[in-house]
């Protein structure tokens, strides 16, 4: 198996986080995504109100993700050295933003299901 395959990549990630933590994180991500899809299908509509809160959470998610990654890698913004570093950091921020938005939206929807008011 000389090539870079999905299998190799999974093996590397398993070693990186530990098998249980890695698959645990994958499971959490899958559960949240499934819950998100569930509420979307259940409600058959996006609640703009909940979406607003989700959007407000996004910058916090972005900053938290960047801070987390810098912290666990003992580095700081001064270490950003080239375009690829900026791209990677933006990617981390984007994942944090989207992740928290989905989470916030889903949590609200599960806690307070969309109530369809009868049309008057």
């Amino acid at each position: 198996m000389q090539d870079m395959t999905l299998g190799t990549l999974i093996a590397v990630f398993e070693e990186m986080f530990g098998r249980w933590l890695f698959w645990g994180l994958v499971a959490v991500a899958l559960v949240v995504t499934a819950a998100y899809l569930y509420v979307l299908i259940r409600d058959r509509a996006m609640s703009m109100h909940k979406f607003l809160w989700a959007q407000i959470a996004m910058p916090f998610g972005a900053v938290a993700a960047v801070a987390f990654v810098l912290r666990i890698t003992r580095s700081g913004l001064r270490d950003i050295g080239g375009p690829i570093d900026v791209i990677t950091l933006l990617g981390v921020a984007a994942m944090g933003a989207v992740g928290i938005a989905v989470l916030v939206y889903t949590a609200q929807s599960l806690a307070r299901p969309l109530v369809r008011r009868p049309k008057t």
Binding site: M1, V12, F13, E14, I84
Partner: peptide, 30 residues
């Protein structure tokens, strides 16, 4: 990833990914 350029991403590789890759190699998986 440019070689011979001081980069944060290359640091990430040494700090985070190298041991994981090494372990995967030990297991004959990489």
């Amino acid at each position: 990833i440019a070689p011979l350029e001081e980069l944060w991403i290359s640091w990430l590789m040494k700090e985070v990914a190298l041991k994981a890759t090494y372990n995967a190699m030990l297991r004959g998986k990489a």
